[in-house]
């Protein structure tokens, strides 16, 4: 087996043994089930399937939960190995440093994928049980939500490596990860909202705002999943870009893809500077 796959397999195994898989699956599943059940109470009057409504609320929740779980998985990746002395061992072997990061990335992504697939599956089964046959479209929407959640997770796993490779202590890396989460999924949106309120219908709202929204992978994720349900877009601040061509289609996902690649590259450079 190649070194990259050996590292990936060990990380996935650790994720399972350390109960990370179980914990993140339970968290995601509990919230998914709650949202489906809440949705089943609200859809009485609306002509929308239960699953479609659930997807809208699930994607809003995932914007917060997925980055948090991803960062918790990855913040320890380098700093923790320095702490425990195992980084010296790994780097004494002939593997290249990028191989270490790519291996860890694949392993952590596998852990997150298991959790997302299981929780989405349970949500789908529950929605079908409550609502009868929801038809192929909402099921496709749920699959897209799960796939883009994995992509969103990939971004923040990679960003977590930057935090982990730039400090030597696990505690500092953890603080950095929490800061990144707050900034990316809470403060960034608040700042955008403030800008939007201040500028009204000005240049900011029409030309700059959509790009800033795309720039943040979490917002790009939300944009992609909400464009499926127009009602949800109207209800949120995202409605401002619904008319913009930027909000159309799958290429919105170029943002999280680019972020993932960029973050891994930066982390590789940072790891290259680590003197174990």
């Amino acid at each position: 087996m190649s070194p990259v796959m050996a590292i990936a397999r060990t990380e996935a195994r650790l994720g399972i043994r350390n109960s990370w898989v179980l914990l993140s699956t339970v968290i995601l599943t509990v919230f998914a089930v709650l949202l489906v059940l809440l949705g089943s109470g609200a859809t009485g009057e609306v002509d929308a399937s239960l699953l479609a409504v659930s997807i809208a609320s699930l994607s809003t929740l995932s914007v917060y939960l997925i980055p948090l779980i991803a960062l918790l998985l990855s913040f320890d990746a380098i700093a923790g190995e320095i702490d425990r002395g195992t980084l010296q061992l790994v780097l004494a072997t002939p593997i290249a440093r990028w191989q270490l990061l790519v291996g860890k990335f694949l392993g952590h992504l596998a852990v997150l994928t298991i959790a997302i697939v299981i929780s989405s599956g349970i949500a789908a089964i529950l929605a079908i049980a409550l609502d009868g046959n929801p038809g192929p479209q909402p099921l496709g929407g749920l699959a897209a939500l799960a796939a883009t959640s994995i992509l969103l997770g990939a971004v923040f796993i990679a960003v977590g490596y930057i935090a982990s490779a730039s400090v030597r202590q696990t505690g500092t890396a953890a603080a950095l990860a929490v800061g990144i989460w707050l900034g990316a999924v809470v403060l960034y949106d608040l700042a955008l909202l403030g800008g939007l309120l201040a500028s009204g219908e000005g240049v900011f709202a029409r030309t700059i705002f959509p790009w800033l929204l795309l720039l943040n992978p979490a917002d790009a994720f939300r944009l992609y999943n909400m464009s499926a349900t127009d009602t949800a877009l109207v209800q949120t601040g995202l409605g401002a870009v619904s008319g913009s061509p930027l909000a159309q289609g799958a290429w919105v996902l170029a943002s999280p893809l680019a972020w993932t690649l960029a973050a891994i590259s930066v982390a590789v450079v940072l790891l290259g500077r680590v003197r174990p």
């Binding site: 060990t10 195994r13 650790l14 043994r17 350390n18 425990r84 002395g85 195992t86 010296q88 061992l89």
Partner: peptide, 8 residues
């Protein structure tokens, strides 16, 4: 000083 992952 090296601490291998306890669960492996």
């Amino acid at each position: 000083n090296v601490a291998f992952p306890k669960t492996l």
